[in-house]
Each structure stands twice: as structure tokens, then as C-alpha cells.
Design a protein around this nucleic acid. Structure first.
Lengths: 337, 337
DNA sequence: ATGAAAGCGCTAACAA
DNA sequence: TTGTTAGCGCTTTCAT
């Protein structure tokens, strides 16, 4: 293995100069620099990255903690993170937790051990106190998820507003009994989506009914189950807003199973705009989160924190968009592919 | 930062002994070991992993090169890899290439730079010669994909046999004009799935027709397009076997768009059994790849290569399974959720 | 603008 | 069984 001292010897300079050429080229006289670069080329020298990490106490690697990489909304965000990271010569370490908090804590060791330089969190299960301690000790960014009482760099959408729009859209179709299948209530995000729904009902003077609100956990299965529950109510809803697309699909399939037709008998709106929402039949009307862009920006925020730990912990709110497809009954145009 | 020498001092031993307690506990007398462990606890000592990596020239990190993490079949395999890796105290670095060969080569630098100890490849675009060189220099495992003329540790299914079964199933439904939408022909896997299809036709004395075979690229969009082409043939197929589920869904949606009913007018079978195949309407009959298990085993194979570079480069073939749903017309039972 | 040299914290060969 | 010690290859401070 050819090392720095070999290059130095060939170029007739010290290792310090070689190091400078690599890390601070402008601090070396052009003539010397060229000599060194030639030697590097001639010897086909590759710096030992591990030695560098050790010496600098940095790894150019970041950790992404994700609840479930097999969920397309997360994998899209990760794709965005990955793209920006690799542009900036950073590596992405993947921490898949399967929604297991213990595993989240395990992965945090990578930070303590300095195996990664920073962290992007796509799940909000970690205790607030710990989160607050983390963000003071390490560069940390939240994406898609967020918390309210701790000031952390965050990129997200306005979940209240988007959910308001989704619900409003159903109201404008003439629906008065609108159900909501929420996400798990331990997440602020689920809470906000519920709030948007509630606010829309209030704004349009529609009576709320606790019966029409059901808690799911963002999985297809709970969407299916909770829809079944809604359908056996004495007065079942004529429309449902689900807190994500998977649950919306569960709700649609449950209705179909009971012989109902969507959107004729039941209008459905989802959230996220995952790939399959447009492939599904009927196409799922939904709120599009700009997932890949979210990943890009999360990584950019993290790079800034990496560069300057005192960088402002701002929250960036991206635009979401209501995508109207067939499941809500307001679209008579056929699905395009 | 408390370091090893602090622990050594407190425990009244040398750093070598502390190191031994950490890496070879059985080589230290119990009494000493306890003393050291106590000191570690008391000082809350955390070994500096970067120093260790540097010193040992190992990182306990492996790289997974994946064509597209947003594709559920790959994210499931990655989940399997991740699970086994973290059990064995290994980290998984994610290399998403977006099917860009250049990016694959970029990621290989991580190996050369010793930033990762080994590699799992989920895509087979890399040049055979380079692959052959790689597998001699580094621990390397192929999962799902495979190549024929280079001997590399591989975990996969029997794609020919599975495709034979899928096609045979359609034949047994009475179909005589069966189309195939293949994967890209630069991959052996696509080629094998086509072979299985051809073999089934031959076995059942059904004339092959070049018109009925269309090349896609595993995307929903190409499935849709190629199905449109098949439908404008003078004598269109009554059944189609698509080389993956996404293309099968594209084919189904294309048929629906043309006013055909699936499975009544067209029977469809896919491949992979991604999550949405069971959620889709009609449920997609498909070949199930044991994706998570594939990931588990790939990681186990890699761990063995890591442990012993001369470990046999065996190919492990996992069982696949025909999952019958509605899209092929042989199942009158309703979809369960 | 460049060089000399002191480590970063750990591991492992060797000695005792 | 334990200790001594020489690095691993790079970066960076200080001196020139």
C-alpha cells in the first residue's frame, strides 16, 4: 500500500506538504503542488481514509434513522438524502428500526461513538428530553416528522393545512358525514392531521362525531380494520379522510369487500402520494408530500449544521399539494397512466 | 474524552489488558477482568471506534449496492440484510444507484478505500471482468441477481423454474395465446424468466410467437406501454406473464383502460410478490421471492466470507412460491385483506 | 511556503 | 497471565 510518505519522498517534499495539497491546495505554491500531484498520480496514491477519520475524528458519514425502509414514503425520502449526500461526498448509514424504540436508541450509539458525524431522524419516537440533549450534542435534523417543544432543525410540510384541504375537498363534494382514520396518536404528525380534519369540519359547521374518528397505525391493515368498524355504525360515513395512503387503500378495499363502490358509495382521500396511489384502482386522491425534495433539504440542513454547529435550528415547511384522482368522486376524467 | 489509558490507570493494569478484556475476555484472569470492567463502568469509558478501525484496518461496515431503494422488492431485501447485520454488530451502508452504472463504480471506491469491509450487490450491471476481479479482492455476495460465468457467492431463487410454473399455471387455465413482458435483456435474471416462459410453451406444445414477447425495464410504465402494444395485435393474447409485479400492474391497468376486464378478458401473472400485489385490485397472481430471507442469508454468506476469504463461493437457491390471487382467473375466492 | 515532529487511541507482537 | 512498546497513516502546530 503506497502511503503519503512515499509520495512525499518522490516529490521531494515533506508529508505535511502532501497533506496540504490534498486538503488546502491554495496554501501550496503552484510549482510544488504540481510536483506533488504528479507523484500522487505516478504512484497511484489513495489516502487511507480510516487514518484520516481517526486523526480528524470525523467520518463523512451520516445516519438516517427510519421506521421502515420498506415503506415507500420513507424510501423516497432516503433517496433524496442519499442523492444530496453523495453529491457532497457524504455516505449514508441506514438505521432501520421497524418502529422499535429500542433499536433507535441502539443506533444513537453510532453518534456517541463518533462513527457518524450527524443524524437525520424520520421517526419521532425518541423521548423529548433525549432529543433535546441530542440536538445540543450533535448535528441533528428531523424530516417529515417534527416535535413542538424542542427547537430542532426540521423539514416538513404543514400537516394541519394539508389535512384541512383534504377534508374541505370532501366537504365541497357535498359530504356531511366524514370519517377520519388517524395515525398513531403518539406522534404530533398524526395529531396535526386530525386537527386539520377537525378544523375543516368546524369551519363548515359540520357536527363532529367521535364515532367517526378511528385510530390506525399507518398500516394498510389498520386502515382496513377501522373502515370495517366505521361501516357497521348505525349511520356510517359517506366519506373518509385517512392519514396516509396505505390506510386509505385499506379503507377502500374494506368498502369494496362489503359491496360498496368507491367513490360512489364512499369517497376516500389519503395522504403522502406514494407511488401506488396512482396505480391503485380507483386512483387515490391524496396530499402529495415532496418526499425526495424533503430528503434533499434535510441533508442540506444537516450539512450546514455539520459545518457550523451553531447554525440556526430553523424549520423549513415545504408545499404540499392536493392530488385529485378517482377515489373522492370529484374527478370524472379517466386515470392516465 | 476518557480513554483506555485512564481505565488502565484506575484498574492498575496496562492498556493491553484493558484491550484484552474488551476483545478477548477469556484470556484475562477473572479477578483482573472484573477490576477492569468496574473501571470501565466507573469512568463510563467508550472505546474510540475510529482508532480501532484505523488500527485494525476494518470498519465492521458493509455496503449494499441497490438499483433503487424506493422499489419495494429491494427495500425488503435490504431490511433482511440490515436485520442480520445489526445482530452481528455490523453496519449497513446504503449505495443507491438509480440504475446508474457510474454510481455503482463510485461506490466501489468505498471498498478500495477500506471504508467498508464487504459488499452485497443487488444489481448486476457491473462488468463481468470487474466483478471477477472484485470477488477475488473483497468479500462479495450477490443477492437476487446473479451471473453465470463468474463464481461468486450468491443467494437467489430458480427464476427459470418459477417462470415455468407461472406460465404453466396460465396454460392450465386453458390459455393458448400467452404474452410475456420481460425485464431488460442485459440481465441474466430477465433472460431466465423469459426462458422459463419459453420452456413452458414448448412443454405444452404451444407455438411461440415473437410478437407476444415484449421487453420492459421492470417499471410500471413499461408494463403499461408494452401491454398497449400487445393489445393492438391482430390476435392479442388472452393471458400475460410479466417479469415483475410492477409491470403486471401496468399491464392490468392498460387492459382496464382499453375496456377489458381482468381476469375475464385477460389473465395476468406477475413476479416478486411485492406488498402491493395483494392490495391491488384484482390481486396479482405472482411468484413470491422470499425477499427478507434472501437479505438475511446474503448477509450471513458475507459474514462467512469476511471471516474466511477462502470460504466457498456457493450459490444458495431459495424456494419461491406461486401465489394465486384474482388476476389469473383461477381463484374465485374473494381477496382476504 | 515549507518542514520537523508530535501525537490521535488503540492493538498486537514480543517479552517477562 | 500480564506488561512494554512500537507503530497504524495522517494532520497540524510550531518553527523556520
Amino acid at each position: 500500500m503506497v502511503k503519503m510518505v512515499d509520495v512525499a519522498r518522490l516529490a521531494n517534499v515533506s508529508t505535511a506538504t502532501v497533506s496540504r495539497v490534498l486538503r488546502n491546495p491554495e496554501s501550496v505554491k503552484e510549482h510544488t503542488r504540481l510536483k506533488v500531484l504528479n507523484s500522487i498520480e505516478e504512484l497511484n496514491y489513495q489516502p487511507n481514509v480510516l487514518a484520516r477519520h481517526f486523526r480528524r475524528n470525523k467520518t463523512n458519514t451520516i445516519l438516517v434513522i427510519v421506521p421502515n425502509i420498506a415503506n415507500t414514503i420513507f424510501s423516497q425520502i432516503v433517496r433524496g438524502i442519499e442523492a444530496t449526500a453523495s453529491e457532497k461526498n457524504f455516505r449514508v448509514l441506514l438505521g432501520n428500526t421497524n418502529r422499535d424504540v429500542e433499536k433507535e436508541y441502539d443506533f444513537l450509539n453510532l453518534l456517541h461513538q463518533r462513527q457518524v458525524d450527524g443524524l437525520i431522524l424520520l421517526s419521532g419516537k425518541i423521548d423529548h428530553d433525549i432529543l433535546s440533549e441530542l440536538k445540543d450534542k450533535y448535528p441533528l435534523v428531523l424530516a417529515s416528522e417534527y416535535v413542538d417543544d424542542v427547537e430542532i432543525a426540521t423539514v416538513c410540510i404543514d400537516n394541519i393545512k394539508s389535512s384541512f384541504e383534504a377534508t374541505e375537498h370532501l366537504i365541497k363534494q357535498g359530504h356531511k358525514r366524514i370519517g377520519h382514520i388517524s395515525g398513531p396518536m403518539n406522534s404530533l404528525l398524526s395529531f396535526d392531521r386530525l386537527s386539520g380534519y377537525n378544523q375543516a369540519l368546524k369551519e363548515y359547521h359540520i357536527d363532529e362525531s367521535k364515532d367517526l374518528i378511528r385510530e390506525g397505525d399507518f398500516s394498510y391493515e389498520t386502515g382496513y380494520q377501522q373502515m370495517c368498524e366505521l361501516l357497521i355504525l348505525p349511520e356510517p360515513p359517506t366519506a373518509v379522510f385517512a392519514a396516509n395512503d396505505e390506510m386509505a387503500m385499506g379503507a377502500i378495499n374494506a368498502s369494496k369487500k362489503k359491496g360498496l363502490s368507491v367513490p360512489k358509495d364512499l369517497a376516500v382521500v389519503g395522504f403522502d402520494n406514494i407511488r401506488f396511489s396512482s396505480i391503485f384502482d380507483p386512483g387515490v386522491t391524496t396530499i402529495a408530500q415532496p418526499a425526495v425534495e424533503m430528503g434533499n433539504i434535510a441533508m442540506e440542513l444537516l450539512l450546514q449544521k455539520l459545518d457550523d454547529p451553531d447554525f440556526e435550528n430553523k424549520r423549513i415547511t415545504l408545499k404540499s399539494e392536493l392530488i385529485i384522482r378517482e377515489s373522492c368522486g370529484s374527478n370524472i376524467v379517466e386515470t392516465s397512466q
